[in-house]
Amino acid sequence: MPKLTIRSFATLGELLPSKNMEVSTSATTVQQLIDFIAKEYNPRFKEQIIDPKTGKVHGLYKIFVNGRDIDFVDRLETKLKDGDNVAFFPPVGGG
């Protein structure tokens, strides 16, 4: 089964067993990966990231696949393959 590295930052990381973890999953898109994480680890992870009204990523969060913002690829339908590195983070804007 393909292995993915998941890195989650700031408050998001607290919802998972580890902020930096490797998972074996059949998920082939970012949406499927988020569903997998919600089922296997914590449903709140998905509740935080996905806006239930639109089904899209909440404006507060960013998701990178191998350093590339999924907004520039195929958003939640961005494809994943073995060895990919997926990073979730909420940017903070205070100064």
Binding site: A10, F89, V92
Partner: peptide, 8 residues
């Protein structure tokens, strides 16, 4: 950017 004890 910062918030609480976090920053980027």
């Amino acid at each position: 950017g910062v918030s609480a004890l976090h920053g980027q």
